[in-house]
């Protein structure tokens, strides 16, 4: 269970990026976080990963407070961030460097096979296309078998076709050992294809406006009228979020639809 309690982040310049965020993410749940730019969704992910420390509030994973990066929390960034001097195989094995060589090799190759890059194991990162590099980054995050995988707009730099492919691919990967996924995105369709619940955030200061649980059957069909309907609904929420300005410290209820 990933628990976020009254999490706030104020940057040294005074900007309040997150204001008392509360969330519960069940094991194996896929949680989408959407919002316009500046709503604090990336900050939220960085706090969850332990890369940044909150100003107040806590993040706990299975009862343990998260105070820095943890082995059971994997992260995929917007860019692949592969080490250009390592082969794809060594990049994927980067996170399990402490394992014995034989086991590292077998787990790395298993991860590479799952993301369909086993034939590129010896290639340099520069030789891969954007989508392939991002799949290598996914393999690197998953090879350590994290119980939580955080994804920060992982597919936003890819072309539409590759993005759809990778969304489906992510679900296949998730199905192996069903980690908790927290996916930050500005793409509502992406959030709807993947998520069990969708959190809509509003900016200035970053707060949760709505938590939606779209009752869509899986696998999700992007052309299903109900899918379309939900897309419209969440788009409306996003519009509401961007118009919304919270003044002062009044408490706010996180509405549910």
């Amino acid at each position: 269970m990933l628990l976020v309690d009254s999490l706030s982040k104020r940057y040294p310049n005074g900007h309040l990026a997150l204001d008392r965020i509360g969330l519960e993410v069940a094991p194996g749940e896929i949680l989408g976080v959407v919002g316009g730019s500046g709503c604090g969704k990336s900050t939220l992910l960085r706090l969850l990963s332990g890369l940044e420390v909150p100003t107040s509030g806590t993040v706990t994973l299975n009862g343990q407070p998260v105070r820095g990066p943890r082995g059971e929390i994997g992260v995929v960034f917007q860019e692949p961030r592969l080490m250009p001097w390592l082969s794809i195989r060594d990049n994927v094995g980067f996170g399990i460097r402490h394992l014995p060589k034989a086991e590292r090799r077998s787990r790395t190759d298993e991860a590479l096979t799952r993301v369909g890059l086993i034939d590129f194991a010896g290639a340099w990162p520069r030789e891969l296309s954007g989508g392939m590099a991002q799949r290598a980054a996914l393999a690197r995050a998953l090879v350590g078998r994290p119980s939580v995988l955080l994804l920060d707009e992982p597919f936003s730099a890819l072309d539409a076709l590759t993005r759809c492919d990778l969304q489906d691919h992510l679900l296949d990967l998730w199905a192996y050992d069903r980690p908790t996924l927290v996916l930050v995105t500005h793409d509502i369709e992406e959030a709807l294809v993947l998520s069990d619940r969708v959190v809509v955030m509003q900016p200035r200061p970053g707060r949760i406006l709505t938590v939606a649980t779209p009752p869509l059957p899986r696998p999700r069909d992007r052309s299903d009228p109900l899918f379309e309907e939900w897309k419209r609904r969440l788009l409306g929420e996003l519009g509401r979020a961007s118009r919304h300005r919270t003044d002062g410290d009044e408490a706010f209820p996180a509405a549910a639809i």
Partner: peptide, 19 residues
Amino acid sequence: MTAVTVSEPAAPVPPVASA
């Protein structure tokens, strides 16, 4: 190239031999 290799991960093109 991106789209093709990604949609057919089962039959990947061998690594580009580079410049």
